[in-house]
Amino acid sequence: MTQEFWRWKEYNWKDGTKDWRNARIITAGVDVGSVSSKVAIMTDGELYAHSLMRTGSDSSQSATKAINWAMEGSGLTIDKIQYVVGTGYGRVNVPFAKKSITEIACHARGANFIWGQSVRTVLDMGGQDCKAIKCDEKGKVSAFLMNDKCAAGTGRGMEVFADLLSVPIEQMGELSFAVDKEPEPVSSTCVVFAKSEALGLLRQGWSKEKVIAAYSSAMAHRVFTLLEKVGVEKDFVITGGISKNKGIAKRIENELKITALPRPDKYDPVLAGAIGAALFAKALVEKEKR
């Protein structure tokens, strides 16, 4: 089989030091994105287990698979989870979710949990769209803007380029820095056109690294214009799959002249939406009890 360069690593994790049987409130957030499905299971407001998987063609099946993978080996079953909130693109297709909440609210809430109360601007760079979110110290959204009209500035666009250049997607960020001088960004914002433009550049003798750099800065600029519209305030953070791409993150920081808070060791920023959903689920359980 040929190598699939766009394929990123799926994984699950469990906090071995905790036992869900001792928890008072068990909630879960299921974030079914267009490209990946994320599940976060929380016990009393602390992260207990999570999983990250590729979303298949059937979103409800992907949601079930992802939650089962997160629970694997813990003895925990869906019926023991008091409240499940669905979020993301496929949020209405989560069969075991009691409620669905937009990923906008969940990412803000999740970022507030991951980085702390100082977060004011969240940039969620997802698989299929890109969102600029502003929030207050409680993680409540005060303004948002979403671009889902085209794939420019999204993970899907990056996947297309990884495949075109035969570079594993995890290495795209690193390689984009391997140029002597930052090249002009590719002029097309559309991914399909950018792809043909990149092919032309390769034929002219550009190195792969140079093409990646040119595409990365075009992507960063596109996202920058989106952020400009809502206005960026410190502290600024990036969530979603693209947050793992240093080449993009760095270029956005350069345009904004604001440094994003560094990626925490403890939590994967890709999980922000799922964590936010699980936290909302906890708040909803508490509201029901009252």
């Binding site: 409540k140 005060s142 303004a143 948002f144 671009n147 519209k229």
Partner: peptide, 16 residues
Amino acid sequence: MLANYGYKDGSGEFFI
């Protein structure tokens, strides 16, 4: 919350 619906493309900015 300010909810911006719409888009920005080559022909301009269109948000409600």
